[in-house]
Amino acid sequence: MLVTIALVVVLTVAILQSPASTRLGPLLVIAPALTPSFAGPRGTAAVGALTVAAGLLIALLRGGLTNGDHLAQLAALATLSMMIVLFTVVRERRNRQLARAQSVAEAAQRALLRPIPERIGSLQIATMYLAAEYEAQIGADLYTATRSGDGARMIIGDVRGKGLAAVGESALLLSAFRLIAAQHATLPDLASTLDRNVSRYLLDFAQTDSETAEHFVTALFLDIPDDAPVARLTNCGHPPPLLLRHDRVVCLDGAAAPPLGLGTLVADDYPDDTVPFEVGDTLLLYTDGVIEARDRSGVFYPLAERVARWNGCTPEALVSHIRRDLLAHAGGRLGDDAAAVAIRRTAGQPGQGLLGLL
């Protein structure tokens, strides 16, 4: 505010000191034009009024209000100042509406993606979520975890679709997983049941929502027992996880079933892979928004290559590195939602972290 007030004073003095033939009066509009960049409607209106008053003073000292040029300049200053104030009012109103929308979206996202405990049994876990729609802060990628007998079960998935319909499908799958994950003996049984639930949901809404009819969900199911150094995987069309062991990064690119929601398979058709997962190993789960992020040259983000630099980091440090590096690669803006879950097996007690899931 002080800068624009000083600008009005300086311009007024300069105009009064300049020859009458030099028309510097229109420069006064610079002050109210600059004010909205750092002030609200009241401040902008105050500077606008000061500018009009300065124009009036100049007119009185330079020939009076009977001069047609002075009257035209005053009318222009008053009109432009009012238009700038009106613009500032509209901008402030939209900013408040956006802030309310972001607050609602953040609350919905917290309800949808409840934080996974940092520790479940002997597992250390860290997560990352970046929504492509930055203003909304909500997307359709999903992940969650729960205790199941003497182990932990997890899911990471990606709803293929946009808008509220995709968010609804994500909420449905997460809720169903949390309810029935511990009720199925194997991951293929769990995947088959969830496939039927998603297919039924899509069928119910297909007649009223043409976008929903085209949706499906890629998902990766993970079962990590407490008493065995292994992890069991069932992949339903999802990007394969990475295993970080010592100085190596291994892509666990095993068999994969079609995505959920197509309703074409029975339990026996789903893969049930078992991979070594020992103390000190880290599994990195992610959605395709990570590996399909492009830089300005159109190059995809080389996740496996970058992760190799951070092998040995804690899960929290690993996802923090990925977040910063991914945003830097994509120029600060992603074309799709991106999520990642890092899981490290430690020598901790199997029962730790159980209360965090209750």
Rank of each mutant, 00 (worst) to 15 (best):
R147T: 10
L173V: 12
A140Q: 02
D150H: 10
D189Y: 12
A152Q: 04
D158K: 00
S170K: 01
A171N: 13
R196I: 12
G139S: 03
R196S: 14
D141M: 02
L172Y: 13
T144M: 04
A166W: 04
L190N: 10
L187N: 05
E169M: 11
R196K: 14
F177K: 01
L190P: 09
V198Q: 01
E135H: 11
I156M: 07
L190S: 10
A176Q: 07
A166M: 09
L174Y: 05
Y201T: 06
A182D: 15
L187M: 05
S148A: 14
V159E: 00
E135W: 10
G151A: 12
G168I: 00
A182G: 12
A165V: 03
A145R: 00
L174M: 08
L194R: 06
R147I: 10
A182C: 11
A182R: 15
A176H: 04
Y143N: 09
A136M: 13
D158H: 02
K162H: 14
S148C: 03
D189P: 07
Y201C: 11
A132D: 07
S148K: 08
L202E: 04
K162A: 09
L187Q: 07
S199E: 14
H184K: 14
A181Y: 07
A181R: 08
V167S: 13
Q137D: 12
N197K: 13
V198A: 03
Y201L: 04
I155E: 02
D189S: 14
A181F: 08
R178L: 15
G139A: 03
Y134G: 05
T186L: 13
E135D: 14
V167K: 11
D141H: 02
S175V: 09
H184S: 14
T186H: 15
R160Q: 06
A152V: 15
Y143F: 15
I155L: 14
G163V: 03
R200P: 00
Q137F: 14
H184Y: 15
D195N: 06
D195G: 02
I138D: 03
G161W: 04
A171M: 09
I155T: 10
A181Q: 09
S170R: 01
R160C: 08
T193Y: 11
E133L: 11
L174V: 12
H184E: 15
A145S: 04
Q183V: 03
F177G: 05
A152L: 02
A171S: 15
L202K: 05
I138G: 08
L142F: 00
V198G: 00
R147E: 09
L172P: 12
A182M: 10
L174W: 05
E133W: 05
A171Y: 10
R147Q: 11
R178S: 13
L164Q: 14
A191R: 04
P188R: 01
G151H: 06
S148H: 07
Q183R: 15
A140T: 02
L187H: 06
K162C: 08
A145C: 07
I156W: 06
I138S: 09
E169R: 01
L142M: 07
Y134Q: 12
T146Y: 00
A176M: 11
T186M: 13
